[in-house]
Design a protein around this nucleic acid. Sequence first.
DNA 1: ATTTAAATGTGATATAAATCACATTTAACA
DNA 2: TGTTAAATGTGATTTATATCACATTTAAAT
Lengths: 223, 223
Amino acid sequence: MNCIDCNFKSSATKFLSKGEIEELSHNCAHVEFKKGEKIFKESSFSSNIIYLKSGLVKVHILGPKNEQITKITKASAFLGLPTTFNEKVNKYSATALENCKVCFIDLEVFKHFIYKNGVFAYQIITELCKNEIDSFFRCLNRTQKQITGRVADALLFFYHDIYDDKEFILPLTREEFGNYIDTTRESVSRIINDFQKEGIIKIKNKKIKILKEERLINISEKG
Amino acid sequence: MNCIDCNFKSSATKFLSKGEIEELSHNCAHVEFKKGEKIFKESSFSSNIIYLKSGLVKVHILGPKNEQITKITKASAFLGLPTTFNEKVNKYSATALENCKVCFIDLEVFKHFIYKNGVFAYQIITELCKNEIDSFFRCLNRTQKQITGRVADALLFFYHDIYDDKEFILPLTREEFGNYIDTTRESVSRIINDFQKEGIIKIKNKKIKILKEERLINISEKG
DNA sequence: ATTTAAATGTGATATAAATCACATTTAACA
DNA sequence: TGTTAAATGTGATTTATATCACATTTAAAT
């Protein structure tokens, strides 16, 4: 497989020269993961840059008390750049929430691109900056909003950022949902069922339909 | 003032060529801030890269409920790279906790260095990656530890990462301390006074001395 | 040095959310 | 297709921490 024909190029990779793309092709392994499989694991060695070509992934860390889902990332995106870059071992894990296609890129080759190709480096910096700001705000919401608001946020996130559809199959169990918004499976259960009773959403197991977006936005804002 | 003579060069700036340092000198403004002054402000335009040469700074965001101190940064470090880079307006504020010396670097010149100097770009990427991992863990502790553990963490942070001394002047009011660990001034008050009663620390207003580090570590780990 | 405002301490009370316990449903698999 | 395990729902209870209220101390300002 040659990267030149790949339809999933990242914003950074688009700026590589033909020669560089060629070099990438020889140092890039394509791997597929099934739903539920771990892509990389906390405390294991990190020696490749991981690029998510298609699919949906949860990034998670085992905290002092629970597993926390730090973020949910959909393709295309680099997965865990920070952990690969200046750490010998991964500081967190990534698990496929849907079937995923992933590229493992040799770290040295990737570094070489940064050294030689300023536009490539700039794109990576831009992505990292965006990630950091996003994580600031996720943390702010996690710590300052009440659970109802956090559930509303998460539902709106799946609608707008992941599926672009008011109806979707929730890719998480109630427990994972809890890990994503820092609460328990019981609280998630109660709140989404309350939402259903109030006619804000419709749920059938994992299938969710947002009926009253404005109410969700309102609940999200009130905290 | 010429940057070539500056004793506070960042790890990235060290890799600039003589010509580039010269260019930097012409596009870099040195400013001093007194304790309590705002260095940059949420919602204001961000048009400069800000480099903290000396002093101590709090980075903070106004959340849905309270002000949150996202992190406390001591020199030398870039302040708010993420917010300057791909946002027109700042997403958060930075305020001096001590008198600070700061450089305002023209954004275009900084970008130019990234494009032209791969080692410079690589250093910036390294710093951004480190920041992101740190913020993941800060968020994890914020959400999963009980207040006692978070207070212990913060005290150990000031000891190890800021002052390198078991005795220090706390650069925050009780309320700011609360904003830093996501709690109220009352809870901070109660807990540090409990710590004093148990002989773990000694406090006299803002002056703190850590007496039993092992106990603090233990409290921090138990959550 | 005196006044005023800001910061801090501390008890009493309220509250959001965790925990516990168990019933029920859904999905996995053999 | 039936059996077992995993996931979910829901009430009752507990708990950590916020909130409220007010006294006291410290720092700032005149």
